[in-house]
Design a protein around this nucleic acid. Structure first.
Lengths: 147, 147
DNA sequence: CCACGATAGGTGTATCTACACTTATTTCAT
DNA sequence: ATGAAATAAGTGTAGATACACCTATCGTGG
């Protein structure tokens, strides 16, 4: 650490290339585009993501779903609350009473079905903005093991 | 819309390739890595991002800073509150009394200076996990105009 | 001068995110 | 059998995100 009076020669310019800033900015912008297109559907993209995963993969415990989404388990717990409120999912205990098994309901499937065209439109719009190179870049990013 | 009884032939499998899901998952994971490394510094990566931008670009109104960060203005307003609480930034009115000019303070600069080595460590860690291809992909993503 | 559109920003509400900590239960070694 | 380690999840707290709506001020055409 520099003592008082010593000049700070640190290259703070490097912070302009922060990977976290870039990834978060992209995620914010993309999320806004999806939510804007999907607004009429009544399903947010974050909720659509959870529901569609449950639809594709079936019932599973919270921890497993959180791992699948690269999300903290406690975050997912909170995100599930509005979905349960809407009756789009059910939460039940299985053989192991510790585990909480999450499943999509019929109304949940209906919500996905209803929101799908809006999602598809947003996906197409963002796909066009990204271009084939941007799409490939994002796909590569998703394939990286980041913990 | 399919009427009751008609089979739903929609390819929900496509949702597994959602650009929004991928970008958000990457941002979450990357953010956790940075915050984990920077925890001892007492500065969160989201706060570090705002402070370093102010440090590099100088005083500016909220709207301009929000645009720079690809963030909703109202989001930034909320994010500035903890920074002002810490006395890391100042908020003042300029010639136009509508505008609120944000500037980093001496303690704010000190916080950036103190957090920089931790940020640098996180940047290196994530850079390694991304690999040169991942870094290039993220950079390309950041260069895309997503609104 | 003044009405009005444009600009800058705050607030209410709701959701998303995650760390630290805690509770409950299972599993396993002895 | 039993106690410790491992596993699964909820809660307190705090911050990040953004839409809808609101207020205040600026600039400009008439």
């Amino acid at each position: 650490m520099a003592r008082t009076g010593e000049p700070d020669t640190t290259d703070y310019m490097a912070t302009a290339g922060c990977f976290c800033m870039t990834s978060r900015e992209a995620a914010r912008k993309i999320t806004r585009l999806y939510d804007s297109r999907m607004q009429e559907s009544g399903v947010r993209i974050t909720q659509f993501t959870i529901l569609s995963q449950l639809m594709l993969r079936g019932e599973m415990p919270i921890g497993k779903l959180a791992g699948l989404l690269g999300m903290e388990r406690t975050t997912l717990t909170r995100n599930l609350a509005p979905l349960e409120e809407q009756k789009w999912i059910t939460v039940r205990s299985g053989d192991d009473p510790r585990a909480r098994l999450i499943a999509i309901t019929a109304p949940g499937r209906a919500a996905v079905r209803r929101a799908f065209p809006y999602w598809s439109s947003a996906q197409a719009q963002v796909g066009k903005l990204l271009g084939s190179e941007g799409q490939a870049a994002l796909k590569l990013l998703g394939s990286r093991n980041l913990g």
